[in-house]
């Protein structure tokens, strides 16, 4: 009873309730109905007859580069002892990352200075890549290609669209003969080339820093004389496998989170056009930040671990 009275009497609650109801009703009106989700696992070539390498993922990567560099230039170009608002924000971020790096790699250590550019660049690049995919227009603005060309990819996309029979049916119907929309932009994090590249860089630099710190002794982590230390040789073999599987876990963790997030947003927009996607946008903002932080922290932790000799511990 109280709730009902509040609904009627409190103007703000009443207006909000009316707004929610109107939006939900509008969501089922066919005019406002969102198109079935267009799910593409791979980044697509933008030009139908152009080079295959010119994908929407690549274009967006360049856009991300541009945004990051512009943000840096705006913060640093008129750098002052007493910072302006933007300079302050950027300084806060750089200092936060610097302190985080130091807290893991050692305060004021040479390692901290060596690792810092790698991990902060990973963080910034991944964060902006994750967030740029949430901008309106991503996935909705694009170029129409003839259907036949991307049919094979569309098939895979359909397999991935796990939103129930209805959605798949609609999507499948849409694919038949109709031209396919290739989005102009695609979040670089939802492009396996980018996540795999970062994973390769992370794992390769881990080995590099390890060798730099310990010399050839570093590889005794993986290869031990099986006649002297049989158990150690087995463990070393597993270490080697774990190291290689890091490439996969790094790349697919980031790709999976961001790609799945975008699919979830599309599906939610398809099911209920209004309101429901907003909730998931908040979730995606959170996930985007967490994934950037996770990638950065794991890389930093692996770098630091690689520079520590294992023989000293045992």
């Amino acid at each position: 009873m109280n709730l009902l009275r509040a609904l009627v009497l409190n103007a703000r609650i009443r207006n909000a309730t009316i707004g929610i109801i109107v939006l939900l009703v509008l969501s089922v009106v066919p005019v406002f109905k969102a198109p079935p989700p267009h799910v593409e696992l791979a980044a697509e070539a933008l030009l139908e007859h152009g080079p295959k390498w010119f994908t929407n993922g690549l274009l967006t990567t360049l856009l991300v580069d541009l945004i990051i560099i512009l943000m840096a230039v705006f913060a640093v170009s008129r750098m002052k002892e007493i910072p302006g608002a933007w300079q302050n924000i950027v300084e806060m971020m750089v200092e936060g990352m610097w302190n985080l790096t130091q807290s893991i790699a050692g305060h004021g250590s040479a390692n901290s200075r060596k690792f810092f550019p790698w991990v902060i660049t990973i963080f910034i690049f991944v964060l902006i890549s994750n967030y740029i995919g949430l901008l309106p227009g991503f996935g909705s603005i694009g170029i129409y290609h003839s259907a036949a060309e991307s049919h094979a990819q569309a098939e895979l996309g359909n397999q991935l669209a796990m939103v129930g029979a209805e959605a798949v049916a609609v999507a499948a119907a849409a694919e038949e003969g109709k031209p396919v929309l290739v989005p102009l932009f695609r979040s670089p994090s939802a492009d396996l080339n980018m996540t795999l590249a970062l994973a390769l860089i992370s794992v390769f630099m881990t080995q590099f820093f390890g060798v730099q710190a310990l010399g050839m002794r570093y590889f005794t982590k993986y290869f031990k004389n099986p006649f002297k230390d049989g158990m150690g040789a087995v463990v070393g073999f597993f270490e080697l496998i774990a190291e290689i599987s890091k490439i996969i876990s790094f790349s697919f963790r980031l790709f999976g989170n961001i790609f799945a997030g975008e699919v979830v947003l599309l599906v939610m927009a398809f099911l209920v056009t209004f309101l429901l996607p907003s909730i998931f946008y908040g979730l995606e903002l959170f996930i985007g930040f967490i994934q950037a932080l996770v990638f950065m922290l794991l890389t930093l932790a692996f770098f630091t671990m690689a520079t520590v000799s294992h023989d000293d511990h045992h």
Binding site: L41, A42, A43, E44, K52, W53, T55, G57, L58, T61, L62, D65, I68, I69, A72, V73, A75, V76, V90, V94, F116, P117, W118, I120, T121, I124, F125, P188, D191, L192, N193, M194, L196, A197, L198, L200, I201
Partner: peptide, 26 residues
């Protein structure tokens, strides 16, 4: 969607971005 050209371009992109930001920002 993985191709070695795109992979290489991403690696180079990251390297360049790091060098630029190192000089420009950090």
């Amino acid at each position: 969607g993985i191709s070695w050209q795109l992979l290489l371009s991403q690696i180079i992109n990251f390297g360049l971005l790091m060098v630029i930001l190192q000089q420009l920002l950090y």
